[in-house]
Design a protein around this nucleic acid. Structure first.
Length: 464
RNA sequence: GCUCCCUUCGUCUAGAGGCCCAGGACAUUGCCCUCUCAAGGCAAGUACACGAGUUCGAAUCUCGUAGGGAGCGCCA
């Protein structure tokens, strides 16, 4: 099986509809598609599926592209950069679809349907009540030319339906699910052109993949049962079939496909919280995909390690604690300068260097800024205990010692050790808590140097 | 309702009949290191949904059952 994935270059694509921002699940399929193309030396296409004029917005298209670029997912052909199959926005491909619709109609493979939304709604309802699958009843399929003419004369609008042949077996090999077999009789005639004249997903998505030279379609599991419809269209048109692979969906805590109610699920939200693209990519790389390396992978190394044969069928649960792990790793790998600009507050270099190991998201830095130049929040319970068990005398001694030692922690602790007899954690912890308000944090020695002497003295005295 | 898909530790996964009384990673807990945290090292616990069958032998094959998901839209 693996030989199947090795040899020739594959062309893949990402075909989002610009009706919202880039979702993590979509980002993952885009990423896998890109990886597969890169790994094989092929091409990756971005196509915008904006035939639904009501819901599509230019703003979303731009956001989508910005999010993709933020993640470092660059395309070889797309609406903004063009390419051999331009245009890459389906709203601009109407003429192409029109010639195909005409062919299908002339061949008797598609027919105009005059049913209204209400008709169809009612029909589906009736079928459901009768315990039958809600499929198009075929009302308009066998209309005579006269009947059609009569309806046109009445000014009725029509959509175009694909005439699904009966008792046809549609087979294909899904790269993740293996051999698939569907019976056409289970599929009702479906709309390929809306009454507005625009193409529907089943149609334009399939023919564009074919004509744009896409060799491997990677998409979510939810499209698996749509595939036979698209295959019938392609076959009817005599167009080349791409390979298909349906990856298990990305789901939330509750096992339901990722959506708004699971908290932040859009790329933009993670970006705004300060997650690093390489961290997100490392996480996504292992969701529904078995990596052959456990450790950190730089994005540049990922294509070589992508294994299409190891794509997951089962849904993968998005778990932020794993993302956090990669985020830590990503922060570790940044230079001090990069961290500085990532934190975005113009922090001095010595501060950045000091806190970098205690920060996984930019929000974590604010507490340390307060330690260095600001006011400490009230102590937590365990911190209070540490202060209490050290006792007032300890802090009185500490304040006195500080007047001698200044911000030299070594000197301060040496003096204190002498005067109180304390050592080790018993000595350091109360100092740390008094000085920083927390039991954990960066190196105390440097922290002490960074705060003003007045601040340090005041903090020590406040517990005396 | 009909059709299709899915089911291995808490989570991501390895596993394509014996190498598996199931391996790794994240998370968790403990220990080491250390003023603390992080990092690093070591260690621990926890999983083949269930039931039949095929086989000398099944996480792996077959059939059922249960649970989850998707599609059946003039949404993609």
């Amino acid at each position: 099986m693996s030989a199947l994935f090795d040899s020739s270059p594959v062309t893949t694509r990402f075909a989002p509809s610009p009706t919202g921002s880039l979702h993590l699940g979509n980002a993952r399929t885009a990423f896998f598609s890109l990886l597969w193309a890169r790994r094989s030396g092929g091409r990756f296409i971005l196509r915008i599926e904006d035939t639904d004029v009501e819901r599509s917005q230019l703003r979303f298209r731009d956001e989508l592209m910005a999010d993709l670029r933020w993640l470092g997912l660059d395309w070889d052909e797309g609406p903004d950069i063009g390419g051999p199959s331009a245009p890459y926005s389906q709203a601009e491909r109407g003429e192409f679809y029109a010639t195909l619709f005409a062919r299908l109609e002339a061949d008797g493979r598609a027919y105009p349907c005059y049913c209204t939304a209400e008709d169809l709604e009612l029909s589906r309802k009736l079928q459901r009540m009768a315990g039958k699958p809600p499929r198009y009843a075929g009302t308009c399929r066998y209309l005579t030319d006269e009947q059609r003419a009569e309806r046109e004369a009445r000014g009725l609008k029509s959509s175009l339906r694909f005439a699904v042949p009966s008792d046809q077996i549609i087979e294909f090999v899904d790269v993740v699910h293996g051999p698939q077999r569907f019976v056409s009789s289970d599929i009702g005639d479906f709309i390929i052109r809306r009454d507005s004249g625009t193409s529907s997903f089943f149609f334009c998505n399939a023919v564009d993949d074919s004509v744009m030279g896409v060799t491997q379609v990677l998409r979510g599991d939810d499209h698996l049962t749509n595939t036979p419809r698209q295959l019938m269209v392609l076959d009817a048109l005599g167009m080349r079939r791409p390979g298909y692979g349906h990856v298990g969906l990305l789901v939330g805590e509750d096992g339901a496909p990722l959506s708004k109610r699971h908290g932040s699920t859009s790329a933009l939200e993670f970006r705004e919280r300060g997650f690093l693209p390489a961290a997100v990519l490392n996480h996504l790389f292992r969701l529904g995909h078995a990596s052959d390396v456990d450790g950190w992978l730089s994005p540049a190394d990922m294509p070589a390690h992508f294994r299409p044969g190891h794509l997951g069928r089962a849904p993968a649960r998005f778990d932020e604690s794993q993302l956090m792990h990669w985020q830590k790793a990503a922060v570790e790998r940044m230079s001090a300068g990069q961290i500085g600009s990532w934190l975005g507050c113009g922090d001095p270099a010595d501060f950045v260097e000091l806190v970098r190991h205690n920060v996984v998201l930019p929000a974590d830095a604010v507490a340390w800024r307060a330690v260095v130049r600001g006011d400490l929040p009230p102590l937590g319970e365990s911190e209070q205990r540490i202060v209490a068990s050290a006792g007032r005398e300890f802090f009185a001694a500490a304040a006195a010692a500080f007047d001698q030692s200044g911000q030299d922690l070594n000197l301060l602790t040496a003096l204190l050790k002498e005067r109180t007899g304390r050592k080790g954690a018993d000595l350091f912890m109360p100092l740390r808590v008094a000085l920083t308000g927390q039991a954990h944090g960066p190196e105390l020695k440097i922290l002490l140097k960074l705060m003003s002497p007045e601040t340090a003295r005041r903090r020590l005295k406040s517990h005396a």
